[in-house]
């Protein structure tokens, strides 16, 4: 077993062979999830707690389902409505839950690095479900699995990531993962939505969408994070759609068999044309959701196994 990580906090600390091992296992879970009886006992008896300090329906549902399909007892906590409001610190909340002996903590938090901080304080595996603008590792892994299944490989592909790169943890995790697996990454978007220091990321940056999409294998759209906007990043939604919204005309610059991805939830008519998003010949957006459950199952199993094989932790 080549997966060694104790926590899944980001793609940054994963090695290419760990990524491959995880995707291989996820492939098996895709098969399981397509059967009538979608259940495994591989993590039976273990406890998973989901702590979402930021609203999320889709991701939380995906993690919940993944844990249940592996036989775990799963509890989801809406942290926004709980003790955080009463002034309890993040660490105290974590320690409280830690005392209940969970085996896996799935955490989403609005601040970058908050999940790293929490992981230092608990003695179970922590899975980052998105922290601020930092990382969203399972999203990048599910995107990778989707690409690998659609394209037959996960290397030497040209991938364009388009839109609000600056505020996107999905973009960061994908840039890291695709780079580690030796793909060409292009970032496309207005200069105001590019993060600082982007020239040093080992990517190509395009402000013109048609140039950026030229001959790419994969077009990855990002949600325009309206709630993250302080205002003043783009003049208007309609100008953004005109210049950076993905429509058939702009997509025609990509390879004929290029796939279209979106992490959801979509703003139809803002960053992507609604008809295109539903085009089953081009869009793999629904597959992404399906891969999400499988990738999360694989990640959870590998994290638990890595802990079990650790010499410092003796499990009954």
């Amino acid at each position: 077993m080549s997966f060694r990580a104790k926590h899944l906090l980001g793609i940054e600390h994963l090695a290419p062979d760990e990524i491959t091992a995880l995707l291989d296992l996820a492939d098996q879970y895709v098969d399981l999830n397509r059967r009538d009886v979608k259940h495994s006992e591989v993590l039976a008896g273990l406890t998973q707690i989901n702590m979402f300090f930021e609203n999320s329906t889709r991701t939380q549902a995906s993690f919940e389902l993944a844990g249940k399909r592996l036989g775990m007892d799963v509890m989801s906590m809406a942290m926004q409505a709980s003790s955080v409001k009463k002034g309890e610190t993040l660490i105290d909340t974590a320690l409280t839950l830690n005392a209940m002996h969970p085996d896996l903590l799935v955490v989403r938090h609005p601040h970058s690095g908050a999940v790293n901080l929490l992981a230092e304080k608990v003695n179970c595996a922590v899975l980052n479900a998105g922290d601020g603008r930092h990382e969203h590792p399972t999203q990048a892994l599910l995107d990778a699995l989707t690409i690998r299944r659609a394209k037959g490989r996960l290397h030497r592909l040209s991938v364009a990531i388009c839109g609000d790169i600056a505020h996107s943890r999905v973009a960061r995790s994908n840039i890291l993962l695709l780079g580690k697996m030796e793909n060409r990454v292009r970032l496309v978007g207005p200069a105001t939505l590019m993060p600082s220091g982007i020239a040093e990321f080992g990517v190509e940056v395009f402000e013109d969408m048609r140039e950026g999409l030229e001959d790419v294998d994969v077009v990855m759209m990002l949600r325009l994070q309206k709630e993250r906007m302080d205002g003043g990043f783009i003049p208007s939604e309609r100008e953004y759609y005109h210049r950076y919204g993905l429509d058939p005309e702009k997509l025609s610059f990509a390879k004929d068999d290029a796939i279209v991805m979106h992490p959801g939830p979509m703003n139809r008519g803002v960053e992507i044309d609604g008809t295109l998003a539903d085009d089953i010949n081009r869009s793999v957006i629904q597959e992404q959701v399906e891969m999400g459950v499988a990738v999360r199952m694989a990640a959870m199993e590998l994290l638990v196994r890595a802990r079990r094989s650790s010499p410092r932790e003796v499990l009954a």
């Binding site: 601020g132 930092h134 993060p195 600082s196 220091g197 982007i198 040093e200």
Partner: peptide, 15 residues
């Protein structure tokens, strides 16, 4: 401080 490190960590930076 803004730059590659700030962006990788996802932290708000200033030039």
């Amino acid at each position: 401080t803004s730059g590659k490190f700030a962006s990788l960590r996802g932290l708000p930076g200033v030039s």
